[in-house]
Simulated scan of single mutants.
Amino acid sequence: MTREFKIVHEQQIDGTPEQVFAAATEGSAGWLWPVDIELKLGGAGPFGSSVTAWDPPHRYANHMDGENGFYNTLEFEISERPDGKSWLRYVHSGVIFEDEENQYEAAQQHTAFYQHTLAQVVKYFPGRQASFAEVQGPEGSGAADALQRVKAALGISDVEAGHRVSVTIDGLGHVDAEVDYLAENFVGLRTEDAMYRFFGRNAFGSVVGMTIHLFGGDASDEAAGDEIARTEAAAWGAWLNGLFG
């Protein structure tokens, strides 16, 4: 069976339309993962898509078609609000081919988390490029309570978003952060120069994962930033492996 879907997420962002548009199109390593986009109408987009709307700083969209009726479309519509703020309407539409209900729920929850992270980038790291790394937990992090164990190890089991936490990571030292996002299946931590995002994909048939987005110091130097990101990924990977034996 297949299912067409449409996910709409709207939010106010503390930043100008120019800042939001730049983050959405050129700064994806800061809130999603590194994506190369040819910055023009008809240009090449991610995963074989094409840029179908290009009107800086108000509209960007890409679209791709595939076999058996598959398609995937991403749309960003940005309008100006008073006091240097913006309104972003994001729409993701496409087709799911299997495990429809579970995958649709996962897509909805991931969208909310990614779009929150985009807003955090614009507010706290405007115009700054990020170095990116991704970490996957071991097989044991696919257990039903896996993300709850991560939350406990981070010291956030009994706190709410907005609280500060500190965790010691071998090789990195103390990581002092604000909990900027907290949901059943997701956790976001923000420091002065980094964001750490934890994904409880154990709830959707996979394992716990995390992404690392580094904005400080040598992150503006691509080679040096990538090396720092790899070092952080190794340290956090060892932490997850230790947590799940």
Rank of each mutant, 00 (worst) to 15 (best):
M1Q: 08
R3L: 13
I7Q: 03
E10R: 10
Q12T: 13
G15V: 04
E26F: 03
G27L: 13
S28K: 12
G30V: 11
W31Q: 05
I37Q: 10
G45K: 09
P46D: 09
P46Y: 04
P46G: 10
A53Y: 04
P56D: 05
P56W: 04
Y60K: 01
A61P: 07
H63I: 08
D65P: 00
G66A: 11
F70R: 06
S79F: 00
G84Q: 06
S86Y: 00
W87P: 00
Y90I: 06
G94W: 04
I96A: 05
I96F: 10
I96C: 05
F97P: 01
E105W: 05
E105P: 00
E105L: 14
Q109A: 07
H110L: 10
H110D: 09
T111R: 06
F113W: 04
Y114L: 09
H116R: 09
H116K: 11
T117D: 10
L118T: 09
Q120H: 05
V122W: 03
G127F: 06
Q129K: 15
Q129R: 14
V135K: 01
V135N: 02
Q136T: 07
G137R: 01
E139P: 00
G140C: 05
S141R: 06
S141C: 11
A143P: 05
V150T: 09
A153V: 11
A153H: 13
I156E: 06
D158H: 14
V159L: 14
G162K: 14
R164M: 13
V165H: 10
V165R: 13
S166E: 14
V167A: 13
D170E: 14
L172M: 06
G173F: 09
V175C: 05
V175I: 15
D176V: 12
V179Y: 03
A183D: 15
V187E: 02
L189N: 08
R190L: 04
D193I: 07
M195P: 02
Y196A: 00
Y196Q: 03
R201F: 15
A203C: 12
G205L: 11
V208W: 07
V208G: 10
G209D: 09
G209R: 13
T211I: 04
T211C: 07
A219W: 00
S220W: 02
S220V: 11
E222H: 08
E227M: 11
A229W: 00
W236I: 03
A238P: 01
W239D: 05
L243D: 08
